[in-house]
Simulated assay, not measured.
Amino acid sequence: MNMVKILTLLFFGISTNAITTTSTDNGKCEEFTNTCAVISCGSQRSAGLPGRDGRDGKEGPKGEKGDKGQQGHRGSQGPPGKIGPPGAKGDKGSIGQKGEQGVSATSEVDTVREQMKVFERELHLLQASLNKYNKILLFHGGKQAGDKVFVTNGFEENFENAQKTCKEAGGNLATPRNAAENSATQEILHTKGESSKSFLGISDAQVEGIFKYLTGEKMTFTNWNLGEPNNSKDNEDCVEIQDNGKWNDIPCNLLRLVICEF
């Protein structure tokens, strides 16, 4: 009868969740927790053949939620995600401090105009000083003709030295370019007495018979004596002005009164 029950349990696949032991002393069966519905009791018998694999039973009820485990180590950083949509437009910021005022083109023009006014004032002062200087020269025997002032140092020198003296003073040898300038030079000769003569800034040293100003320019005014220039003895490359205002060609090594123009 017991074997029939065992075979019946194996046939229907009912697995037991309890352990059953048989006592040899009193032949009773002791039951532990969760025993099956059918318990066989009796004397110990030999083990039967292994039963067929049973089928899983129904899933039991869900157990209670366990305690929270310890936090694990931080994993490696994953790849960057896609760029999200643009955020909402922020509030307008506060107004910054006002910058320095720039210089406009009009201001630059005004600056240039002011500089020109200063330059003109300085030029007028310079002109006034020059006029004052000219008056001083005239007071000491100088003669003015147009924009030129003619003066003498009272010494006689040859052509080369006379020219050097005038250059060092910031002027040139007297070079009349019109009748007024020629008369001013003549008047200075009169202050030194009769028969006074002076070199002019004119020469034909480069090309014989072609007189030019020392600057290399062609002459625009002449006042030669009758029969002059004649290049007497082929040695007259320089020009003198006589007390009568007439010109004459003479050797350059003679001594004549130094008259400079400024």
Rank of each mutant, 00 (worst) to 15 (best):
Q44A: 14
K62F: 01
A37R: 00
E64R: 06
G42L: 04
P50C: 05
A37E: 00
S43T: 13
K58F: 09
Q44R: 13
P79N: 12
G93H: 08
C36Y: 00
G48T: 07
A37H: 01
P85A: 15
G84F: 11
P50D: 09
K58S: 03
G81M: 04
S94K: 11
G93I: 06
S40P: 00
K92N: 09
G42T: 07
K58L: 12
K62E: 10
D53V: 13
G63S: 05
G48H: 01
Q71Y: 04
K62S: 07
A47C: 04
G90A: 15
K92F: 09
P86L: 10
R52F: 00
A37F: 01
G60C: 04
G60P: 02
Q71G: 13
G54E: 07
P79Q: 06
P61N: 03
P61F: 02
S76A: 15
H73D: 15
K68W: 02
G78K: 03
K92G: 06
D67L: 07
D53F: 02
H73K: 14
G84K: 08
D53Q: 08
C36V: 02
G48E: 05
K68R: 08
G90H: 03
R52N: 12
S46R: 10
P79H: 06
P86Q: 06
G72N: 08
G78Q: 07
G90T: 04
H73P: 14
P50G: 02
E59D: 15
K82A: 15
K82N: 11
G93D: 12
R74C: 07
R55W: 05
P80T: 12
K82P: 15
A88G: 09
S43F: 02
Q77L: 11
G60I: 05
K82S: 14
G54S: 09
D56Q: 07
P61V: 04
S94A: 13
R74V: 14
P85M: 05
Q77C: 04
E64Q: 10
G84A: 04
G93K: 10
R45L: 14
P50H: 00
S40V: 08
K58Q: 02
G57D: 03
V38I: 14
Q71C: 00
Q71N: 13
G66S: 07
K58C: 00
S43E: 13
K65T: 11
G72H: 03
Q71E: 15
K89F: 06
Q70Y: 09
K65S: 10
K68L: 12
S43I: 09
G69M: 07
L49F: 14
K92I: 15
P61W: 00
D53Y: 00
C41K: 13
G75V: 03
D67N: 11
